[in-house]
Design a protein around this nucleic acid. Structure first.
Lengths: 152, 152
DNA sequence: TCGCAACTGCGAATTATTCGCAAAAGATTG
DNA sequence: CAATCTTTTGCGAATAATTCGCAGTTGCGA
């Protein structure tokens, strides 16, 4: 998908939802779309600034909130309590493996989330919309050297 | 379990882990132990204040952090991004159903979390310690009156 | 090209949580 | 049961992520 197509797509989605295509939104969209992993708002802002240093952090937050409403991106709070992360809202359901020692976040695509949805669909008096599954523990590398002091 | 027993238990656990039994800790423990649902730090502090208004909010946070280390309580971030909630770390695995409209949090005990653990135990290069599953959507009551404006 | 609502940058406000520090209180020992 | 040593507390200030208010700017339909 060439950049311009993605631009056109975004412009169309925005227009159809009564919003405008703007510089900050285009820049944020580029960054999130090309990211290979979760990014915090600060990280996104930093990458945006590489192209256009005039874009404000508040506008990054506003763009992300809008994209989230439009279900273009997905916000997750990965348990560490601190900063939220954003990623492209691709259709594959997945969950996150967060290493409590080194902080690495691994995506894991599989049927698990679907199974949870199915489980909930049967009999539960709850209309599930969003399933957020975060597993914390030790990644392979950190499990290997377990016992050593934690250095962040 | 009479209050004094729980006190004794807490005192023993604290002593064995090289910590001291103190007034603030006892009060926070009482509140969390008797709570029938998740509480935020502010809510816990308010209930603690009913018994002893001199206990500081910072001490509530410190007590909760300690209890969390000792695996007496469990902290969850229920996706809304804002304040964390605490609950007793009972052995039943469970997950949370959060209504995005009225904010109600429902506990759900079942085999689901165990199944997730089993799923992860097989073949994944990750040592899972904590599974946090938060499902957001609409509770029965709110799903019924869906379409009406959201009033928090 | 005009006009106006939508959007932005800026800086200040909010809110949950943590920190530093001096004073207070538990445990331990004599 | 007093002395002491260490942990813990209360307090208020510091942090940090996110949001808000507002005046100025900009996208875009007419």
């Amino acid at each position: 998908m060439a950049p311009m197509d993605a631009d056109q797509d975004l412009a169309a989605i925005l227009r159809d939802s009564g919003n405008r295509m703007t510089g900050p939104r285009r820049r944020v969209w580029e960054v999130v779309r090309l990211a290979d992993r979760h990014l915090t708002a600060e990280e996104i802002a930093a990458k945006v600034h590489a192209n256009d240093p005039t874009v404000n952090l508040a506008s990054v937050y506003r763009a992300l909130a809008l994209f989230s409403d439009l279900e273009l991106v997905r916000e997750s709070n990965l348990g560490d309590g601190d900063a939220a992360r954003w990623e492209l809202a691709h259709p594959d359901e997945h969950f996150h493996l967060v290493c409590r020692r080194c902080g690495a976040v691994d995506h894991h695509v599989g049927r698990l989330v679907e199974e949870i949805r199915e489980h909930l669909a049967g009999g539960h008096q709850f209309h599930a919309e969003n399933v957020e599954l975060v597993v914390t523990g030790l990644c392979r590398r950190c499990a290997a050297k377990s016992g050593q002091p934690i250095t962040h």
